[in-house]
């Protein structure tokens, strides 16, 4: 193909996968705004156009480049013959790790930020999945949530990685969407725990262990795309918009625009991730009290 590819940014795992690959990936699925490539057995890289959240297994292309790629009628299963190594420049790799040179807001500001997010979500988020659990509204999915997650607050506070991962595994693959709501919710919960833990200066080993257990279970309990999403958080790396929102809530203010970005992810995915974040934060704040 004889056009210029403009890569805007790249997740670290995508970079590593591209550099380490012996064979070209195959096309896994093609959507209006996403192209998924499959490596080896079950590694997925997602290609997105500008103004989408960049995760560690993501490549963000300029809008024009994405459109060209999208219009080249890629078919699921075919080999993706472009030279991805041309794309993978270290300069494009963005930092999705948890920053360590920030100072935590006081509890009141965090609580305020949480309230701000809840207000925003109440009126403007997609609540077809699990997000409605925040507002006491019931649907067939949230009905299951309270029993499945009972006592999770204790496991979080006690940092009991085995019980925590068991609980969270019980909602793996649950709910609507290509990344089922339950998985998005778990992703949200884990993101908070990783950030909060880092800040309190504690070791994240127990969390990595919990995340590893969950992603292992996810391999058989959910879709391959979801599995990849969960696997990516073992190292405490979360996609760009999630990272920005968490920094906003825990270290900053004016969280509304950051939350809105998250809510734009997928159809209900963004709302489900945010639900996980707020659900977990509320538990942590109660603990602090």
């Amino acid at each position: 193909m004889d056009y210029n590819i403009t890569v805007e940014k790249l997740g670290k795992a995508a970079y590593d996968l591209i550099c380490g690959a012996k064979e070209p990936p195959t096309v896994h699925s093609v959507f209006t705004n996403a192209i998924n490539l499959k490596y080896q057995e079950d590694y997925i890289i997602t290609i997105l156009p500008q103004n989408h959240s960049c995760g560690t297994q993501t490549i963000i292309l300029s809008e024009a480049t994405f459109k060209i790629l999208r219009s080249s009628r890629l078919q699921a299963g075919e080999s993706f013959e472009m030279d991805l190594k041309e794309w993978a420049k270290e300069d494009y790799v963005i930092d999705l790790t948890i920053p360590d040179k920030l100072y935590l807001n006081n509890e009141l500001s965090i609580t305020n930020n949480i309230k701000c997010c809840l207000d925003e979500m109440k009126c403007s988020s997609n609540q077809d999945g699990l997000a409605s659990c925040l507002f006491g509204r019931e649907n067939i999915y949230t009905k299951l949530l309270s029993t499945k997650l009972s006592q999770i607050d204790l496991h979080i506070i006690e940092q009991d990685e085995s019980k925590l991962s068991d609980k969270l595994c019980s909602i793996l693959g649950l709910g609507p969407g290509l990344t089922p709501s339950g998985d998005d919710f778990i992703y949200g919960v884990l993101s908070v725990l990783f950030y909060y833990n880092r800040l309190s200066g504690k070791s994240s080993d127990w969390l990595s262990l919990a995340a590893a257990r969950i992603s292992n279970a996810a391999r058989n309990l959910t879709t391959v795309i979801s599995y990849n999403m969960l696997r990516s958080c073992i190292n405490g790396e979360f996609s760009e918009y999630i990272k920005n929102l968490l920094i906003g809530i825990l270290y900053g203010n004016n969280v509304e625009p950051l939350l809105k970005k998250v809510l734009q992810i997928g159809s209900s995915s963004g709302a489900d991730i945010a639900a996980g974040i707020l659900y977990c934060l509320k538990i942590l704040m109660i603990k602090e009290e």
Partner: peptide, 13 residues
Amino acid sequence: AVVVMGTEHNKEL
């Protein structure tokens, strides 16, 4: 109508 991916937990649901 329930439109979901065929995961274990969705089957349970």
